[in-house]
Design a protein around this nucleic acid. Structure first.
Lengths: 112, 112
DNA sequence: GTTGACACCTAGCTAAACAAAGTATAGGTT
DNA sequence: AACCTATACTTTGTTTAGCTAGGTGTCAAC
């Protein structure tokens, strides 16, 4: 994947993964990789701070647990997060549609 | 449009506009705005440095002219730029397809 | 004579993704 | 026992591209 391509779209991806059910960071990481067929194989240094940011913004809540000796922080999307996801999803649609229109080419003769 | 959403995708948009024919910076600005139905209404401080960057990268060439008293720098996409555009276009497809897959939701039961 | 569209420029800021390091457990291999 | 890999989480600091906010100048309209 191209450098910088993710900028501004990661939040939506994380929210979308967590919208299917609570998951801990490492599972989100794996879920994102699998769902995107390997395109979004993101480093931990990307995903953990992003989850912290989303929790701080009040879109996620987290709870600690221990599964077979390993500490896990499980994130759940809340109502505010659901709303934010819908907003960002709409934003994504608008964005990608606009890109598509630009890529489609010029609808009027290139006079000037 | 969301903050940061453009990061990493602007080059493709500029190359796509210029692929329809040479244009000066301000015309690229307007073209992008029109083609995207106002979604990409970008400030000059975004577009001019980006065009400079692309020229420096050898994807565009520019020539100065004067049209009714106003200096214009007209940019043309060259062969290298055409190739770069195809690459980035493919990158965009891959990226947006991957986002779409993630947004589609979980294809397997959310056990774990 | 001021406003607004046209047309260009750049220094400096910001924020988000990332690299790179660290901690720690469990399980398998040699 | 020593080693490695996968799991699981954390944080500091770097990068960079878009944007803010200013600047220069022309022309037409009011």
């Amino acid at each position: 994947m191209k450098d910088q391509a993710l900028k501004g779209h990661l939040d939506l991806l994380l929210l979308a993964v967590l919208a299917d059910g609570p998951a801990h960071g490492y599972a989100v990481l794996a879920g994102l990789r699998d769902r995107s067929d390997g395109v979004f194989d993101l480093p931990e240094g990307t995903i953990y701070p992003a989850l912290h940011r989303l929790e701080k913004a009040g879109l996620l809540t987290s709870t600690w647990s221990t599964e077979s000796g390993r500490r896990r922080r499980t994130y759940s999307i809340n109502a505010k997060g659901q709303r934010a996801m819908k907003d960002r999803r709409q934003g994504w649609e608008e964005f990608s549609d606009a890109v598509a229109r630009v890529l489609e080419g010029n609808p009027w003769p290139a006079t000037n």
